[in-house]
Amino acid sequence: MAPVPKVQLSGGLEICRILNGMWQVSGAHGPIDSAKAAKAMDAYVNAGLTSFDMADIYGPAEEIFGSFYSQLKSRQGAEAAAGVQGLTKWVPRPGPMTRKVAEHAVDQSLRRMCVECLDCLQFHWWDYSDKRYLDALGHLSDLQQEGKIKELALTNFDTQRLEEITSKGIHISSNQVQYSLIDRRPGVKMAKFCQSEGIQLLTYGTLGGGLISERYLGTGEPTGRGQLNTASLSKYHNMIKLWGGWGLFQELLSTLSSLAQTRGCSIANVATSYVLDQPAVAGVIVGCRLGVPGAEHIADTLGTFQVRLSPADIDGIESVLGRSKDLMLTVGDCGNEYRN
């Protein structure tokens, strides 16, 4: 098996170019057995997919990681455990952002994840009109200098706020944003700024919660909670409607399917490869239904690294994308969907 490609963030943390997303253990995608979920993480690490993305608000995600991490360390030693990366998020409610508040949040994640230093803490803020996000980031930067955080990062911040934060002297390693064939907003202006500042993008929603797959090729549009039965399916179905609708989406899937068939790979491989090739993108986060029988897609995920899209392939894809609506006009810059 070829090694999984990795990339280094500015603080030195090396992560896989495809990360294992743990939003799916939050409860919004169906029930999860925490013990089975922790055990299922072994298969991903054994395949070389050693980077896990989670958040303090993803239900038991941090505790599941901590259980897995401590068991791995006990079985195979500290060196084996050091080969696994745990990226988490702090998503506070609006309120005073004192040093005590920030340190409590960091300490809570350290405790849950059973680590001595957070590999990467990605900060999210709901309301830009409340400028206390700058206070919070200032304290997090101090905690980083004290050794509690390796990489200080953001999630769902727009380009304007990213410029503001960096102008205050706060060093940011990455920004996690939605990026897919459906949602290409990060490529409009954020990627250029990130490249100029040495900031990298970690992307989610790249497979549209599973909608960008063979399963939905040639099907009628899903409706209702019975067919859109996870938070991801509902969220990204709404994005497809804003982008151009189910008919145009079917044209896109058909184009991706043709490319996939000529390469002996999947639609997901082609869609992921497209985003991985975009400027400033360090890695793509692919959601994992950990511990759910039949829900693992490790082999298919690894197939992405065998795909190389030619300029003609990209032209064919973008001929469809060019007929979609401009999400920068209808939604705004990255993260605005959480604040409108």
Rank of each mutant, 00 (worst) to 15 (best):
H139D: 10
D142M: 14
Y179K: 04
L202W: 07
N156E: 13
S167I: 12
A136W: 00
W126N: 03
E151Q: 12
E79M: 09
D107H: 11
H139S: 08
D119N: 13
N175L: 02
Y128S: 09
Q76G: 13
Q144L: 12
Q160I: 06
I149K: 00
E164A: 15
K73Y: 09
H171P: 00
V91H: 01
G210N: 08
R93C: 00
E151T: 09
H139L: 09
G209E: 03
T203S: 14
I182P: 02
A136P: 02
L181P: 03
V188A: 05
Y128D: 03
T98H: 06
F123P: 06
T155P: 08
N175Q: 04
S129Q: 12
V106F: 07
S74K: 15
I170R: 03
M190N: 00
A105D: 00
K168E: 14
G198A: 10
R185E: 04
C117N: 11
I212K: 07
G205I: 10
T155A: 09
L143V: 11
H104R: 13
E116T: 15
S196V: 08
V101A: 15
L162Q: 08
L162Y: 04
T159Q: 01
P94F: 04
K100Y: 05
S196I: 08
K168P: 02
L121H: 06
L202K: 01
L152W: 06
A102C: 13
V106S: 04
S141W: 07
L162F: 11
L134V: 07
M97R: 10
M113V: 14
S74A: 15
G169E: 10
E79G: 05
S109V: 12
V188Y: 01
